[in-house]
Amino acid sequence: MEQLGIEPKLLVAQLVNFSIILFVLTKLLYKPILSILEKRKKQIEEGLQLTEKMKAEEIQMEEKKERLLEQARKDSHAIIEEGKKQAIEEEKEIIAHAHRDADEVMEKAKKEIEHLKEQMEKQMKKQTIETAILMAKRLLERSLDSARKREISDKNIKELESFARSN
């Protein structure tokens, strides 16, 4: 033992030295470093989880947006279609109405024309008859004597009057 240099006092001293090293390094080095490593690990994990969550949320939002856009597109399409249909219907209605109006106007005009024609014809008849009576009077005055004249003219007048009356 002596030749190997082993000396109990020194052995104890080195034991004490190592105990001090163990104690001091545990207090000063291992605990703070390991705790901060753990802390950092936790924080990184939290950060990663957060980003994961955010990513999922973003995807959801994107999907929602897409869905809304799709819906809006569909809606607008439907509205336009509806509008077109309505417009066509209205157009048809308007045209039909116009046709009807025009027909009515035409009908009225025809009736009026007819009426006018009738009236004019009547008037013409009257006038012609009057003129004929006048002409007959004058002709009879010149060629017949007064008795005969009266006789004939009376007869004619009567005839004409009956004709006129019958007419």
Binding site: I20, V24, L25, L28, L29, P32, I33, I36, R40, Q43
Partner: peptide
């Protein structure tokens, strides 16, 4: 050696931060 270790330990943790 103890001094070296302690100084290293002190320097590395006296202003420890994340």
């Amino acid at each position: 050696v103890m001094a070296i270790l302690f100084i290293f330990a002190f320097l590395s943790t006296h202003s420890i931060s994340l």
